Amino acid sequence: MTRAEQIAAFRPRYQQDLVSNIERFFEPRRDTCPWCESDRLRERLRTTDLLQHKPGTFVIDRCLTCGHHFQNPQLNELGLEFYYRDCYDGLGRETAESLLGAPRSRKRHRVAAESLRPFVDPGRWLDVGTGYGYFPEAARQVFPKTTFHGLDLGEGVAFAEAEGRVDQALRGLFTDLAPSLAGRYDVVSMHHYLEHTPDPRAQLSAAHTALAPGGLLQIEVPDPGSAYSWMLGRWWVPWFQPQHLHLMPCRNLQQALEEAGFTVMGTERRVAHRPVDLAGAVVFLLSHLLPRDDAPWHAQPPSATARRMRKVLWRSSLPAVLAAYALDLCFAPVARRAGFSNAYRLLARRN
């Protein structure tokens, strides 16, 4: 089936979903911070879906007391299903795999795994939010004798098992599966996963359950305190609306880990930085300004003229994207040291 045929086949379901008001996709708006319960909230960001361009407006609020950033109102289970659909699976599978499995991503995964070598020789390792299993595949090069399990909601985890990237696929919610995994793992990893979850503290509790005493938890998440987040505004890629529900300052996550029964062993910002901020902002801006592409959540496909115009304009814009990416790479050494790092990584031991 061609992509055009897939879009035509999926369009009736999307149009049916959009008949009713999309407000049903959201929880009630909060008046207090979900992290510290303070009522000192300020709107930080208001944006649209810059990933797939599905309808909707999304707000990120910042707590003035603890610095926590969160989507408010937050997507409910129905909304999460709608906005994730065809992003990593279905229509979005090819793009997702090409980005997640890119050579630079694989190299980063291996470096992250190597950072654990001084602390553990794991027998079993659980990668939560594993997607298509590219992180376990890279980590296996560092720990060839380790058994790797991958956990995720999407169909990618089954594909990862079929491709041999994980030894066992676990499909479902980590918080639901954790009791059946109690004490089984020497390492649990969560790379750019925690910010996608409705309740990050519940995920830390699930990791504590799944880990053996003395086991290690490695977490990598976006840093909402990055100078890029202020400079680029809504075009900063790690806001990643509507999928990122919580963006936690490092000190908040450290405190939550200690409360969940962990000892924080180290924090790393420089290595966690991904030099894509400027290029990502240019891509987001272009995709917002150019004539839209065909997608089943649009009532009608674009005209042939609009498609041709989009194709020509996109090709003519590629030099701008490449120039921005070159700047990202050139500025990366400074960014990692000057408050521009867009992510941080924590390593914690289960008490």
Rank of each mutant, 00 (worst) to 15 (best):
N76F: 09
N76A: 07
E77T: 09
L80K: 06
F82E: 00
F82T: 04
F82N: 02
Y84I: 03
D86G: 11
Y88E: 01
Y88H: 10
Y88C: 03
D89E: 11
G90D: 15
L91F: 10
L91I: 08
L91W: 12
G92V: 09
G92D: 12
G92N: 10
R93N: 14
T95N: 12
A96Q: 09
A96I: 00
A96S: 13
E97F: 13
S98I: 12
L99D: 14
L99P: 05
L100C: 05
L100V: 03
G101Y: 05
P103H: 06
P103E: 06
K107C: 09
R108A: 11
H109E: 03
R110W: 08
V111D: 12
A113Y: 02
S115F: 04
L116M: 11
R117H: 08
V120Y: 03
V120C: 10
D121A: 15
P122Y: 00
P122D: 01
R124A: 07
R124G: 00
W125C: 03
D127F: 00
V128Y: 03
V128P: 03
T130F: 01
T130I: 14
G131I: 01
G131R: 01
A139S: 11
A139T: 02
R140S: 12
R140Q: 10
Q141I: 04
Q141V: 06
Q141T: 11
Q141W: 05
T146E: 09
T146M: 10
T147D: 05
F148H: 10
F148V: 07
H149T: 04
H149V: 06
H149S: 09
L151D: 01
L153C: 04
E155L: 14
V157Q: 06
V157L: 11
A158H: 13
A158T: 13
A158D: 13
F159P: 01
E161T: 12
E163Q: 15
G164R: 13
G164D: 09
R165M: 08
R165L: 10
R165T: 06
R165W: 10
R165D: 04
V166I: 15
V166D: 02
D167A: 15
Q168F: 12
Q168P: 07
A169I: 12
A169W: 06
L170M: 11
R171K: 15
R171T: 13
G172M: 14
G172W: 09
L173R: 15
L173E: 15
D176N: 10
P179C: 08
P179S: 13
S180A: 14
S180Y: 05
S180V: 08
S180Q: 14
A182K: 14
G183S: 11
Y185G: 00
